[in-house]
Design a protein around this nucleic acid. Structure first.
Lengths: 128, 128
DNA sequence: GATAGGGGTTCCAGTCTCTGGAAGGTCAAG
DNA sequence: CTTGACCTTCCAGAGACTGGAACCCCTATC
């Protein structure tokens, strides 16, 4: 398969796939003309990566997950640990965003939003 | 005030303050020795920026908010529009993260997390 | 006057994960 | 032989800093 084919089938842009090769996540073979030549197993990896990335795993997490994915003798606890760590990071992010949302929505609610200059939002940002 | 003083009083690192000058958010004067010389108004701006950034506003939003902050003839509706736009982006991010969280926590819950290789997490990332 | 320290300055590179674009090679169809 | 759709590589930029190197300045002490 050429890169366009795997791109379509994995849902990843060609640019991203080249990048993943660059950083060593996949290592497609090369055809005589220099084109990348992907095996089914490469496609599986890329699909896996696409899913993992869409769940927000970092590239380094993906690298570790991919290694476990490839390792028939893995322990599921290793996978679970990575996933739980990521889950904790997601929870933290949600909490941070919720706190911002809370503060900001208060300010927005109090702002008249008319053509006068008085603005509780700016006041909130100015002081404390 | 030197940069160290405004850094302490605004809560922003000196590096960040220099960066903000670089991109034109503040324009401190210069002392004869080449040191940046900050006025009270610069400190106010930096404090304002620190608060806005901590609420997740982008630098470009901050630039716009700062302009409104400085403009005595602003309309509060302009401020509110920016804040509402940002609020919508926060909500979107929270929704995205909640969806990830949902999927991921399902997978984590189903994973035994022992020393066997069978892993619903990897299966979830592979297929589907 | 020399020196030590704790400021300050600039500039370059790296973070993270792509993404866009330029310049050019390859292939199949007409 | 040309066209157009592929493919290749390499460089730069995004956002918002952050670290580090190399160097200057100021004050205080010996």
């Amino acid at each position: 398969m050429n890169i366009g084919d795997v791109a379509e089938r994995s849902g990843l842009p060609p640019k991203t796939i080249r990048y993943y090769e660059d950083i060593g996540l996949v290592t497609p073979q090369r055809a005589a003309n220099g084109y990348r030549s992907f095996r089914e197993s490469d496609l599986h990896k890329l699909t896996f990566l696409g899913h993992a990335r869409s769940l927000g795993f970092s590239i380094e997490d993906c690298r570790a997950l991919l290694a476990l994915y490839e390792d028939e003798t893995r322990a599921s606890s290793d996978v679970k640990r990575i996933a739980q760590g990521h889950l904790a990071r997601i929870d933290q992010k949600i909490a941070d965003l919720a706190a911002m949302r809370e503060t900001l929505s208060h300010l927005v609610r109090e702002c008249a939003g008319d053509d006068r200059p008085d603005c509780p939002i700016l006041q909130g940002l100015e002081g404390n």
